[in-house]
Nucleic acid binder design. Sequence first.
DNA 1: AATTTGACAGCGA
DNA 2: GTCGCTGCCAAAT
Length: 103
Amino acid sequence: MSDFYNKIFELVAKIPKGYVASYGQIARMAGSPRAARSVGTALKHAPDSLNLPFHRVVNQKGEMAPEYVFGSRSPQRELLEAEGVCFLPNGCIDMEFFTWREL
DNA sequence: AATTTGACAGCGA
DNA sequence: GTCGCTGCCAAAT
């Protein structure tokens, strides 16, 4: 496992409940601001054994992975709503208020 | 070992 | 604000 890879898991696992983080955000925390793609690849390869909250990881738009990305049949929207995240009428997450800011 | 793809992000028009 | 091209890192073939 590459170091980035490991950090990505740690960071995703550290995302507070009720918040979401963008790939670029995590990539930046992992030490590579331009490794957003690697973050997605890493999460895809991430064992569910870690119980990583993929649904809290979104792109800048606040939407991206339809459903098949979360292992299919994973009500991402509902999960986030249940955790306190609100969705805009356009179906995107309110990035300004729910994007994790590494407090 | 090398090339291509991929759950993106950033900049230009 | 939206559409298109380029750039980056890691994994898969």
